[in-house]
């Protein structure tokens, strides 16, 4: 970017849940940048800390969760220094999140038009008719049929997939600088998903919005993102461009994950499977968190691997990454 400052720069973020049973280190030392107009895919299995990373950035971590360390720089300023009011002002205007559950965005007792017009008027000095026109336009863009009529509906009159589209329309309303999208298309059909991805892509290209796209669907990330961060047990284990990570994964977890995705040439064959299951983040034993499931594990892995540069522009957290030629 021209001025060299990324829209978002997260450094050593630590978000822990201090429960009676002990500290759940949901996010434990996560660092990444997202530049203007770029899309970062954040992938990883259930419980790896993707959503909590997103909540931390927009300041919506609920107790007993707390950001216990690190920095979240938005256009250079640390968001962790902002008070609640400044943070609220930023949300829904310059920074927006699309949640896994659309009802976190939607108010069940308000009509869609009321909610959308409020969102516009809260941050822009336009008249109501302009705000309404913008709302109608946004609904159309996410593929809601007859947006004019739909504006008068209440959230419960929509199907789950339609509600998610309305929530996405609200996030796009003010053309924010940063969007954190948390599995927004998982419940949608591929054609509607294509429509949403089209709008997301357009926003990034035309207005320079930076985006974090959280998903467990590697194929969606392949088609959309510029870079990928792979999370496992609260940490980033591999980072790089989409092509690098998907074509030449070097962390054993990423390697296994890509092998386990069915594709059009896997028909009739057995898929690679990663044995075992995701570890509990409560009292995670020391050493590499992937150790119990990793085919490359040895005594070295009883110590904790640090994330380190493995090749130009690529980072990996592993003592025995797949670096050999052809791997």
């Amino acid at each position: 970017m021209s001025d060299g400052v990324p829209t978002l720069s997260v450094r050593d973020l630590r978000t822990h849940f201090l429960t009676k049973a002990g500290a759940v280190k949901a996010v434990d030392g996560v660092s990444f940048d997202v530049a203007k107009g770029r899309i970062l895919g954040l992938v990883g299995e259930s419980g790896s800390g993707k959503s909590v990373t997103g909540f931390s950035i927009i300041g919506l971590v609920d107790p007993p969760g707390r950001v216990v360390g690190g920095e979240i720089r938005y256009n250079g300023a640390n968001l962790l220094d902002l008070d609640d009011e400044a943070m609220r002002d930023l949300r829904g205007n310059r920074v927006a999140m699309i949640f896994q559950d659309p009802m976190m965005t939607l108010n069940p007792v308000l009509r869609i038009d009321t909610q959308m017009v409020e969102t516009v008027l809260a941050h822009h000095e336009v008249d109501k008719a302009t705000a309404l026109a913008r709302a109608r336009d946004a609904l159309g863009r996410v593929g809601i049929p007859s947006p004019e009529e739909r504006l008068h509906a209440y959230p419960h009159q929509f199907s789950g997939g339609m509600r998610q589209r309305v929530a996405i329309a609200i996030a796009l309303l003010n053309e924010p600088d940063l969007i954190i999208a948390d599995e927004p298309t998982t419940a949608l059909d591929v054609t509607i998903q294509g429509q949403i991805l089209f709008e997301a892509q357009k926003l990034c290209r035309e207005t320079g919005t930076a985006m974090i796209w959280i998903t467990h669907d590697l194929a969606v990330v392949a088609g959309l993102a510029d870079e990928i961060c792979v999370m496992y047990a609260g940490r980033i284990v591999e980072k790089g461009t989409v092509d690098e990570v998907l074509d030449r994964p070097i962390h054993p977890y990423t390697h296994g994950l890509i092998g386990s995705v069915p594709s059009h040439n896997s028909r009739g064959r057995r898929l690679t499977q990663i044995p075992g299951m995701t570890p509990s983040l409560l009292n995670l034993p020391p050493g590499c968190a992937f150790r119990e499931r990793c085919p490359r594990a040895d005594e070295a892995c009883l110590a904790e691997p640090e994330i380190a540069e493995a090749a130009a522009g690529r980072e990996v957290r592993c003592f025995h990454p797949h670096l050999e030629a052809g791997a």
């Binding site: 049929p145 054609t191 509607i192 998903q193 194929a219 392949a222 088609g223 510029d226 989409v242 998907l246």
Partner: peptide
């Protein structure tokens, strides 16, 4: 054909997504 064209695939990178044509019926 429309459905297959939209399926995300690991080997299709940074594709240009397309808007849905026409109305999506209820």
């Amino acid at each position: 054909r429309a459905l297959l064209a939209e399926v995300p695939r690991l080997d299709i990178r940074r594709r240009d997504y397309e808007p849905v044509r026409g109305e999506i019926p209820s």
